[in-house]
Design a protein around this nucleic acid. Structure first.
Length: 643
RNA sequence: GCCGGCAUAGCUCAGUUGGCCAGAGCAGCUGAUUUGUAAUCAGCGGGUCGGGGGUUCGAAUCCCUCUGCCGGCUCCA
């Protein structure tokens, strides 16, 4: 007998060798039908494999992440089976589950797939699923495995096999399809009832752009048709929040082919929001001892040779601009730090002055590959809410805390609760990749870890993700369609102070090198705006709204009163317009609703008489009548509330 | 940059296997209407079918090329 411990702590006894499905059956038939895989002592396995020892056990169903992953992984295999039947001779790369669904990378030789082929593949998958083929696991020797794929002529699987140890190789077979696979898989393909293949894409084999490009098919699947429908509806909804769509509809920003790809143009309304964000941050920074500066958009090539950026990124950047007569070379500023280092180096510094915090809304230009450009999220010209803090080693942790606090204030204010933080540390096994001494690195990494803990912030640590010049902490936020973007960043840098030979005079009258912290709580105004637009679906909080109200006089007779109200509001700092166009009220209200103007004020006979306004809130409807003074108070309260 | 797809009026889209002066709704303009909480009515204007080149008697439609956009890959200071 063996003892199995369930997540709720209960322990049950079973015969040795019992399968996960049988265990599920002992609890309920329903559970047995729904179990997709099991986790035994932390290892995810097929639900029908025998359990031979006492263990902690989890029965994974569709409601568990592990269950979903198993389901989607099996779906990838089902797709592969369908592909092999439809396109004999197709070769397979890898086919893993992802956050939302699965993909498989395939090589079809000379054949090309069109989006219309996806329907065909889907249908085949459903057909094959009806056979309810079981996934059979088989342990094979490396030799057997190699000969199998040699015969099949699949060089990708052969390459994958090279990295696998003999004795750890398993095959999974369902129906006519056999794949090299660690597993686990769901009990049978019949559980996959709903499939949608979402897109076709090219993907380099093993992510290496020097290698062959395979065809990647993305898909998603569900145990029930209804869930698929709901998911697709959700995707449609998400698309409506896309900042590229809303940005155009609400006239926040635009792009122009003639100006150039990836170069955003901010329209008046977008500019208002951006400016409010900057004013907000400026105030917070002033409280924390930052000094604002302004530096030029270009700098001599030498500046970046000194900083080391030219050597590292020069070839992949916008190329230098030459002056016509002297033949000097200038680069478009790809980052602000070299300029800020020059500011620091402008005069000698005493340890008493540190930390020095230099801030700038600095616009930088970076050459991003054309295929990488994406709305406001990835552009070629953008403005960082940049600052560089020059401090002593001992001040590092406090400064880090100071920045963390600021970042949290910013994210809180925006209502971004679902961000994740990542601490990027060096890989100790490759010290040659990093600049600076071990002692400095240890101290900096510890300072970051301590500071995040002290700030009560959860952050996952990623070994080997540090920049060559120092460890960092990044804040990631997801967009409407679930893509993850880096917003804020805090980076420790030992490299630049060295390269620019920055110094301060210590208490002992000797020269020391300061440590530098790069930080940007928004990251860039552009990317931050993209996320803000998607999170709010364009319904900005009052304090950010570029047009806070619109006054709609019932008829032209009340235009004068509308203007009067407007004046009263603008003198109270409330921004908006009068819509006195010769249109019906219904029409003007509809347009204000569509434009997501938060407050509509309707004025007519009775309002004029009582010096009042009839207030309608966007998305909520009529909330009643109040006097102008009452409305101003109401507005301030709403604004305060963060509405 | 690479793979695949897309590009028709300001916007959203029609446009059968290449064939008369390229269409609709919304927006715009003009006029009527003077409106009480999500689209008043009528009339009018508007497109070198993304740019360039080619095939053809004839191209929005087929081919090449450039530009931009979309979905990915790679990269990201």
């Amino acid at each position: 007998m063996i003892q199995l411990t369930f997540p709720d702590g209960t322990i049950r006894e079973y015969e040795k060798g019992i399968s996960g499905i049988e265990v599920a059956k002992s609890i309920s038939e329903g559970l047995a039908r729904n179990v997709l895989s099991i986790t035994v002592n932390g290892e995810v396995r097929d639900a029908d494999r025998p359990i031979d020892e006492d263990a902690q056990i989890l029965l994974n169903t569709w409601s568990d992440e592990e269950g979903k992953a198993t389901f989607w992984h099996s779906s990838a295999h089902l797709m592969a089976e369908a592909l092999e039947e439809l396109y004999p001779g197709v070769k397979f790369g890898i086919g893993p589950p992802i956050d939302n669904g699965f993909y498989y990378d395939i090589d079809l030789g000379d054949r090309q797939l069109n989006p219309s082929d996806l329907d065909k593949i889907e249908k085949k998958m459903i057909d094959l699923g009806r056979k309810k083929s079981e996934f059979e696991r088989k342990e094979v020797s490396k030799k057997e495995a190699i000969s199998y794929f040699e015969e099949k002529g699949d060089e990708y699987k052969l390459e994958l096999l090279q990295d696998l140890k003999d004795g750890e190789i398993t095959f999974y077979t369902q129906g006519e399809f056999t794949d090299l696979c660690r597993g686990p898989h769901i009990p049978n393909t019949g559980m996959i009832k709903a499939v949608k293949l979402l897109s076709l894409a090219g993907a380099y084999w093993r992510g290496d752009e020097n290698r062959k490009m395979l065809t990647r098919i993305y898909g998603i699947s569900f145990p029930k048709q209804k869930e698929l429908k709901e998911y697709l509806a959700l995707l449609e909804e998400a698309k409506k929040r896309d900042h590229r769509k809303l940005g155009a509809e609400l006239e926040l920003f635009m792009f122009s082919d003639r100006v150039g790809a990836g170069l955003p143009i901010w329209l008046p309304k977008g500019q208002v929001i951006r400016d409010r964000l900057q004013q907000f941050l400026k105030k917070e920074q002033e409280k924390r001892g930052y000094k604002m500066v302004i530096t030029p958009h270009i700098g001599k090539k030498d500046l970046y040779v000194t900083s080391g950026h030219y050597a590292k990124y020069g070839e992949d950047s916008f190329q230098p601009i030459q002056t016509p007569k002297e033949n000097e070379e200038f680069l478009l500023k790809p980052m602000n730090c070299p300029h800020h280092c020059e500011i620091y180096g402008n005069k000698p510094h005493s340890y008493r002055e540190l930390p020095i915090r230099i801030a700038e809304f600095g616009t930088v230009y970076r050459y991003e590959q054309s295929g990488e450009l994406h709305g406001l999220s990835r552009v070629r010209g953008f403005t960082q809410d940049d600052a560089h803090i020059f401090c002593t080693k001992d001040q590092l942790k406090d400064e880090f805390l100071n920045v963390l606090d600021l970042t949290k204030v910013v994210l809180d204010k925006m209502g971004f609760e679902d961000f994740t933080a990542q601490i990027s540390l060096r890989d100790p096994s490759t010290p040659e990749k990093y600049l600076g001494t071990k002692e400095n690195w240890d101290a900096a990494e510890q300072a970051i870890i301590d500071a995040t803990e002290e700030a009560g912030m959860k952050a996952k640590k990623e070994i080997g993700e540090a920049a060559f010049y120092g460890p960092k902490l990044d804040f990631m936020v997801k967009d409407a369609i679930g893509r993850s973007w880096q917003l804020g960043t805090i980076q420790v840098d030992y490299n630049l102070p060295e390269r620019f030979e920055l110094e301060y005079i210590g208490a002992d009258n000797k020269a020391y090198r300061p440590v530098m912290i790069h930080r940007a709580p928004f990251g860039s105004m552009e990317r931050f705006m993209s996320i803000l637009i998607e999170h709010t679906a364009g319904k900005f909080p009052l304090w950010l709204s570029p047009e806070q109200y619109v006054i709609i006089p019932v008829s032209q007779v009340f235009n004068d009163y509308a203007d009067e109200v407007s004046k009263a509001l603008s003198s109270s700092g409330i921004i908006g317009e009068v819509d006195n166009r010769n249109e019906t009220i219904g029409k003007r209200i509809r347009e204000a609703e569509v434009q997501k103007i938060p407050i509509m004020l309707i004025v007519g006979e009775s309002e004029k008489e009582n010096r009042s306004v009839s207030v309608r809130m966007q998305g909520k409807g009529d909330i009643g009548t109040m006097t102008i003074m009452e409305f101003i108070e109401f507005f301030d309260l709403e604004k305060e509330r963060g509405a």
